[in-house]
Design a protein around this nucleic acid. Structure first.
Lengths: 186, 186
DNA sequence: CGACACATGTAACACGTTACATGATTTG
DNA sequence: CAAATCATGTAACGTGTTACATGTGTCG
C-alpha cells in the first residue's frame, strides 16, 4: 500500500497529474524506488474508484490533474498517524531462506550466510559512498534507513554464523581436523 | 517470491501434500508468518505449471502429494546461492512515509516518529519476551532477525528525530503544557 | 529530421489475501 | 452426536510489474 498512500500524500500538497506524481515520488526518496509510470495511472484510477481522489478536467497542456477529496485527506492523516506493525509487513524472504536452509539437507548454510553478507556489505559501502553526495533531508533519511538496515542485517548474519557454530560442529574451518561429526547429541 | 521458494525448499526434503507444507512452513518460522492454506494450493499449481513440481497420484488417505522435479531442484539451489539485494525487496513503507511526511504541510513529523517508535519498542519487548521461550534454532534465528530489525528501526527513528532537530527549530521540547487538541492547522 | 523528454493510458500477468464450499476423520 | 482437526480446492479481489500503444513538444 505504499504507492497508494504515497501518491495520496503527494496530492495533499495540491492537484497533480500522473507524470508529476511519478517524478515527485521518486525525487522524495532520491530514486531509491523507481516507480513505473503505468502504475501511477492504475493507482490513480483505483484511488478515484475508492473516493480518495477526483479527476479534474484536462487542462491546456493536455494534462489530467487529480485532486484529493476530504475522504482522501482523512485516509492520509490516518496513514501518517498509524504506526506500521512488523506483522503487517511482507514476509522477510531472507529470514525464511535461512530458516529453511537450516533444515534442508545438502545446503551449506554457512556459504549462504557468507554470500549474503558479502552482497550486503557491498551494498552498505555503496550507500555510504552515496552519503557523501549531497541531497535533501528526505533522501538522506531514506539512505540512512538503508544503511541502518544493512548494518542490522550484517550483524544478524554474524549472529547466525556464531549460533550455527554452537550447534553444528565446525567442518573444515581452519586446520582443526578433529572428527567432531562423530559426536552424538542427547 | 518467498512462498514459492519456501514451498519448493520444503519439497526438496521429500514429497509433501498441501496441508503438510503449510504446517512445516509455519513451524520453520515459529508461526511468525502464518500461511493461508488456499495460497498453498494455488502456489502448488503455479509451481507445477512452471515445471518445478509434479503432482503425485492421490494416496490412500485422500492426500495429494507433490514431488520436486530436477528443474525445481535447480531453482532451489539458485535461490539459496543468490543473495537477496535490497533493491529487489518491496518498498520500505516506513521510509516512504517519513520522507513524504517531511514535505507534507500540516503533518507533524515528530509525532509520526514518536508513535512509530512507541509501537516498535512495544514489539521489541514482545520479541524479547518470546526469546525466553524455547524453540528450535530456525525459529530463534527468525526471532533474532525481528529483534535486530526492530533495534535498527528504533535507532533510525532516533536518528531522524535528531536530524529533524538540526533542520527545524525545536518547538516545545520539554514543558509540554500545550493543549494539543487546541492546535490549529494552516 | 531524429532523438529525447513529456504525457496518458491499456493489457496481460504475477503474487498474495480472504472468504467460501466441501468432505473425511478423529475425539470428547 | 457434535465439534474440532485434517485435507483439498475455487472464486473474487487487491496491489504491483512489465510491456505495449500512442501522441505532443522541444532541441540539436
Amino acid at each position: 500500500m505504499s504507492i497508494r498512500h504515497g501518491l495520496l500524500a503527494l496530492l495533499e500538497r495540491g492537484a497533480r497529474y500522473g507524470y508529476q506524481l511519478k517524478n515527485e515520488f521518486e525525487e522524495s526518496t532520491g530514486g531509491t524506488w523507481p516507480l513505473n509510470i503505468g502504475q501511477v495511472y492504475t493507482t490513480l484510477n483505483r484511488l478515484e474508484r475508492d473516493g480518495f481522489v477526483r479527476a479534474l478536467p484536462e487542462n491546456e497542456g493536455g494534462q489530467r490533474p487529480y485532486e484529493i477529496t476530504d475522504q482522501g485527506r482523512t485516509e492520509v492523516a490516518l496513514w501518517f498517524t498509524t504506526p506500521i506493525e512488523r506483522a503487517s509487513r511482507p514476509r522477510d524472504e531472507l529470514a525464511i531462506k535461512l530458516a529453511l536452509a537450516l533444515t534442508t539437507p545438502g545446503i551449506d548454510v554457512r556459504s549462504v550466510v557468507q554470500a549474503q553478507r558479502t552482497s550486503t556489505m557491498r551494498a552498505l559501502q555503496e550507500y555510504t559512498r552515496l552519503k557523501q553526495t549531497d541531497g535533501d533531508l528526505p533522501w538522506r533519511l531514506v539512505l540512512d534507513s538503508m544503511i541502518f538496515q544493512s548494518e542490522a542485517e550484517i550483524r544478524w548474519l554474524d549472529h547466525c554464523e556464531s549460533s550455527l557454530a554452537r550447534y553444528t560442529p565446525a567442518k573444515t574451518e581452519q586446520p582443526q581436523e578433529v572428527h567432531e561429526h562423530e559426536r552424538q547429541r542427547a
